[in-house]
């Protein structure tokens, strides 16, 4: 009874702390609250993944047994995989395995799903970081220049290029880059990773960066234009501050919030991009693993991939929200 009372007190104080009953706020508490808030979403994700990969035509056991699998083998595989259990039992089992990320083995090479994904992830991570660095540097630079020199030739050109960058399919841009820089000019190798040399990273990273760069450029421009017209910027100019200080220190920092949002949203949608780019460049990351798994109906891998990437997506969105505070201390976590 005493222990129970202690427990209740503990839970109450925990709940108070989480939901800011006393009205104060801090970042750690916000993080925990957001993570707790992500749980129902992740539960939904697990259910959807289960439905997507279970309610499909064709018997996975038959696929595993291959063309010549006799009925007995298929029946045995069905039993091993738990395919004969009622759907709600299968779903519960999937839930358990999803939460522990113990999703069984690949149908194709018998590798642990988590191992297969984690061994491929560094390559994707490298590509995504490189792509995003290119996007941020390129996008923000051209966005700032466009805003400062509004209606100049430079402005029109870079905004036109940005518009084309948003409208052209990334995989097609990738192919054009291979054609130009590898086939015609012979500057860089086309596909693969070689022995991990840097040159192999250039084309895929640029391709991946084109779309976010274009979006960042547009957002930086419009956000800067809004800020530049404000009184405090005029004051800064009037004080005789240099252009660099006014634009980079006073204006840019306040123009960053929408840009950070775009960077965050695009980092997340980069995960869709890598599926295409990795196929174009034969890049051995999670994106190609996913496409291969789809082709071979390797359901454990597909489930693992979708769960993993959706989880990554949720976490990266959280990080974006947290990063707002760095750029604008006025933003409160509540």
């Amino acid at each position: 009874m005493v222990a129970n009372r202690c427990q209740v007190a503990l839970y109450v104080s925990l709940a108070r702390w989480l939901f800011c009953v006393d009205g104060s706020e801090n970042m750690g508490r916000y993080v925990v609250r957001r993570l707790v808030g992500a749980i129902p979403v992740f539960v939904g994700v697990i259910v959807v993944v289960f439905i997507l990969t279970t309610v499909v035509p064709g018997d996975p056991a038959r696929i595993m047994a291959g063309q010549r699998g006799d009925p007995e083998t298929i029946a045995r595989i069905r039993k091993e995989m738990g395919l004969d259990d009622p759907l709600h039992i299968q779903m519960l089992n999937f839930f358990k395995s999803a939460v522990t990320f113990n999703l069984g083995r690949s149908y194709r090479n018998n590798m642990q799903v988590s191992e297969a994904i984690l061994s491929r992830f560094p390559a994707t991570f490298k590509l995504a970081v490189a792509g995003m660095v290119i996007a941020v540097v390129l996008g923000m630079t051209s966005g700032i220049i466009s805003a400062v020199k509004q209606y100049s030739v430079l402005d029109y050109t870079s905004m036109f290029v940005a518009l084309v960058g948003i409208s052209a399919p990334s995989f097609w841009i990738g192919l054009l880059l291979i054609w130009l820089f590898c086939v015609i000019l012979r500057w860089v190798p086309g596909t693969g990773t070689g022995n991990g040399e840097f040159v192999y990273l250039i084309l895929p990273a640029v391709t991946l960066g084109v779309r976010p760069a274009a979006l960042i450029a547009r957002m930086t421009r419009s956000s800067m234009l809004e800020v530049i017209r404000q009184d405090y910027i005029r004051t800064a100019w009037a004080k005789g501050l240099g252009a660099r200080t006014v634009i980079l220190k006073h204006a840019l920092k306040n123009a960053m919030i929408p840009v950070v949002t775009i960077v965050g949203v695009e980092t997340a949608s980069l995960l869709s991009g890598v599926v295409l780019i990795e196929s174009v460049f034969q890049w051995p990351g999670v994106g190609r693993l996913f496409v291969d798994a789809l082709t071979y109906r390797d359901f454990p891998i597909i489930r693992g991939e979708v769960l993993f990437l959706a989880g990554l997506f949720i976490v990266s969105n959280l990080l974006v929200d947290l990063s707002y505070a760095i750029f604008d201390p006025r933003i409160r976590y509540d």
């Binding site: 979403v41 992740f42 939904g44 994700v45 959807v48 993944v49 997507l52 990969t53 997340a268 949608s269 995960l271 869709s272 599926v275 295409l276 996913f290 496409v291 789809l294 597909i302 991939e305 979708v306 990437l309 959706a310 997506f313 949720i314």
Partner: peptide, 12 residues
Amino acid sequence: IYAFPFLLFVLS
């Protein structure tokens, strides 16, 4: 539905 990378969802 927003939690899924769009293309991945359609592909699945």
